[in-house]
Design a protein around this nucleic acid. Sequence first.
DNA 1: TTGTATGCGTTATCAT
DNA 2: ATGATAACGCATACAA
Lengths: 339, 339
Amino acid sequence: MKKTGQPTINDVARLSQVSKKTVSRVINRSPLVIEETRQRVEEVIAELGYIPNPQARALALRRNFLIALIHDNPNGQMVLGVQQGLLEMLRGTEFELLLHPVDRGMPDMQEDIRNFLERQRPYGVMLLPPISENDALAALCASIGCRYVRMGSATLDVPEHMVASNDRDVVRGAIEYLIAAGHRRICMIAGPAGFRSAHERQLGYEDALTAAGIAIDRAWIAQGDYRFEGGKRAAERLLDLAPRPTAIFASNDEMAIGTMHIADQRGLEVPADLSIIGFDDTPIASHVWPSLTTVRWPIAAMARAAALKLIGDEEEAAKEAAFFSSTLIRRSSVAPPAT
Amino acid sequence: MKKTGQPTINDVARLSQVSKKTVSRVINRSPLVIEETRQRVEEVIAELGYIPNPQARALALRRNFLIALIHDNPNGQMVLGVQQGLLEMLRGTEFELLLHPVDRGMPDMQEDIRNFLERQRPYGVMLLPPISENDALAALCASIGCRYVRMGSATLDVPEHMVASNDRDVVRGAIEYLIAAGHRRICMIAGPAGFRSAHERQLGYEDALTAAGIAIDRAWIAQGDYRFEGGKRAAERLLDLAPRPTAIFASNDEMAIGTMHIADQRGLEVPADLSIIGFDDTPIASHVWPSLTTVRWPIAAMARAAALKLIGDEEEAAKEAAFFSSTLIRRSSVAPPAT
DNA sequence: TTGTATGCGTTATCAT
DNA sequence: ATGATAACGCATACAA
């Protein structure tokens, strides 16, 4: 117990009259320690308030006790939710959360991530969409020897490395909900090309229409960008259609809110003249007027499961759920179409 | 260059025919290296793609090259903005960002933080409000020997350790804007007791009324909790007043949105019957209808300055701005009072 | 079941 | 200005 004030493994060894190695075994729960010895060592540990030095462990193990969250921030709420879920499970463990956002626009993104991983050598990596869809990134994590979990809107990997939501199914359900309310002219604002989530949600939309015997009209699908302004532009195109749609499904809430603005501008009442459904259940959804019917996906639960996959032993990791159901939150932005 | 594949300082030393220590000096920009030697070493470093191992450095220096963000999540947007600003400055440096949210409700919060700091030994710590107002926490950081910066609504510490916004002044300006529009019965929804930001904003409100010769009526100030529901309750109390206020300043956007809901429920038109101003300029503010006049504070800029204070040398740190001005964003929720 | 010697990759001390 | 050697605190291989 020298200058730093922090007791080390040597102090514990000396006071409990065993070797460092035995203390190390106790710390790492090795079964090769007799109960009596373990007790004595643990008493000394408790008495001293000894905590293993993470830096020293990292050096010796060539691996840090850190979980890295790597993402190309598509959505602040998602990032926050994931952080929260991850941290919830990490709390009380020896793990800490490292943030590493990247820019998928940069050509050296892959190199940046490789560099980061080789330097920090995190214990585990959480990959968020859309970059979680990049197989090369997953391979990179594996090759460096760190555990990883990918989050996505569809199954992209084996359960051990995946937490997926059922975007396609839940969107299908949302559209069927509109159909059941009497809607037939249901348009969709799609997400940006290249996003798996956008693709899955569109598939769900098409599933529902097909099942209901409604022909899919390409003009009914306007591409958005998951942002407010893009949603507004898409909504304008859709509301210019004749006959006008009676309902619009927007692939996320931000675009749905944009749609509400355009409806308001045109003197259209929501939901009387136009029903709207969003996706994400962001805080805005419940605060706009009328409140937005939308899809809530269990981000925090997915993140918690991911954390367990990352830090639990392999059996636990494999057992942890890999598939999560979103639910339709029915609020005030949907009504039967005006006749 | 053994099993890990990563070149070490030994490889560099051998190839450049100097000792480890000299390589170390080059890495750390010691002036005690002759130019010629430095050149040779740097060439080898570049050739090998050598990167110092952070874990080994951390062990030897008893200090990690990590910046820790400690907060008791008061506001998702703020946390995101701070993360973004911090990461922007950390990018390309040897520093990484570690997340450590805490719960100020827990009695052992202080112990938790001490534990965290003693274990991780971060290079610097960023403290967010409201816990940044806790002087004991700042002292703790100092005693452990890690640099820290506190973010707050008022000056709580010397510039070296502080990034502050001018809540009081900007709220005064917002209220004066209402007064200039002709309002006299201006109510306020205050933030929760114990938050310095709530206190400062209320002072700004009082400043403006006093300067305008309007008596401050305690009944005009309803306490909220910075949340939607609390804002609604406070708005109800305020709108029950007779005569009714013509304007309400809410201490944050969430409560302002709650106020808009209550106004709508009561058939009050915003801004014709009731003007509303919020604070924070969250994404919701520009997406509600009518769009919300609110105060925007430069979170990202504050975070960037904080990062520089944390990782820059001491001179730079002291020079970096410690005081940041918020601005009133004038949108559609304010109009002259109906006569 | 426990201990000894050694390695992990860097920085610090103290020579020279 | 540079180098040899010893920390830093823990884990692993191999003995005992």
